[in-house]
Simulated scan of single mutants.
Amino acid sequence: MKLLAYELNPFIEFLYHLKLAGKTSRMRSRLLAVLSELAQRHESEVNKLVQEYAEKDEQGKPFIVEEEKGSYYKIANMEQFNKEYQELAQEEIVLDLTAERRAMLECVRDAVLDCEDVFEGDDAIRYNRWCDIVEAIQYEE
């Protein structure tokens, strides 16, 4: 199963909100645990990138700009930061189709493809992408 790093959290959110029961719900929970671990690793890498490019205060901590709209890190070299951030966001995440994961992945694949929810607009486009991801889950008999 392959998806891009920036798709991890939206895909996790989608799976989390699917109305499932029994075995399908348990298999979804297992997949969510695996995907959440990958999302945490990605978030950690983004945090390291911010630490590397953020301007630092006297104590060496990233300088945070406070504004009415919210707060953000002041980035020293925004062009280079954005380039590296985009590379990180576009990183392909691969979940190996191992025998041990077969039941989990096939069960979740079928739940996503058989989902009876109605989608429109951006949600429909995202759902189509989630279907593309799970349709690629194919085990040879």
Rank of each mutant, 00 (worst) to 15 (best):
Glu87Leu: 09
Glu91Phe: 06
Asp114Ala: 00
Phe63Asn: 10
Arg101Cys: 02
Met78Asn: 13
Ser36Thr: 15
Gln86Pro: 07
Tyr16Trp: 10
Ile75Tyr: 04
Glu87Tyr: 13
His17Lys: 07
Ser71Asn: 14
Lys61Asp: 14
Lys56Gly: 13
Ala89Pro: 12
Lys83Ala: 04
Gln40Trp: 11
Asp114Gln: 02
Ser44Phe: 08
Gln51Pro: 10
Thr98Ile: 09
Ala39Gly: 01
Met104Arg: 04
His17Gln: 11
His42Val: 11
Ala76Leu: 12
Asp57His: 10
Arg28Lys: 10
Gln59Arg: 08
Val34His: 03
Leu20Asn: 01
Leu38Ile: 14
Gln80Asn: 05
Asp110Gly: 00
Asp114Cys: 00
Ile75Glu: 06
Thr24Ala: 00
Tyr85Pro: 05
Arg28Leu: 01
Glu37Asn: 09
His17Thr: 09
Val94Ser: 05
Ala99Trp: 15
Glu45Gly: 02
Tyr85Trp: 12
Lys48Arg: 15
Lys56Asp: 15
Asp114Glu: 04
Glu91Pro: 10
Lys19Trp: 03
Arg30Leu: 09
Lys48Cys: 08
Tyr16Ile: 01
Gly22Lys: 13
Met78Pro: 14
Ser25Val: 05
Arg30Ser: 10
Cys107Val: 01
Ser44Pro: 03
Ala76Phe: 09
Ile75Asn: 02
Ser29Met: 02
Cys107Asp: 06
Gly60Gln: 12
Leu31His: 05
Gln51Asn: 15
Arg28Glu: 05
His42Ile: 06
Glu79Ile: 05
Tyr53Thr: 03
Arg28Met: 01
Met27Gly: 00
Glu58Val: 11
Arg28Asn: 07
Lys61Glu: 15
Leu35Ala: 00
Arg109Val: 03
Leu18Thr: 02
Glu91Asp: 15
Gln86Phe: 08
Lys48Ile: 12
Glu58Pro: 09
Gln51Arg: 14
Leu15Gln: 02
Ser29Leu: 02
Val65Ser: 11
Leu105Arg: 00
Ser36His: 09
Arg102Met: 14
Leu105Val: 00
His42Lys: 07
Gln80Arg: 11
Glu45Thr: 11
Leu20Gly: 00
Leu49Thr: 04
Ala21Asp: 12
Leu88Ala: 01
Gln51Cys: 07
Pro62Gln: 12
Leu88Pro: 03
Tyr53Ala: 02
Phe14Leu: 01
Gln90Trp: 13
Tyr53His: 14
Ser71Cys: 07
Arg101Val: 03
Arg26Thr: 11
Ile93Pro: 02
Val46Ile: 13
Lys61Phe: 15
Met27Asn: 12
Leu88Thr: 03
Leu38Ser: 07
Arg102Gly: 07
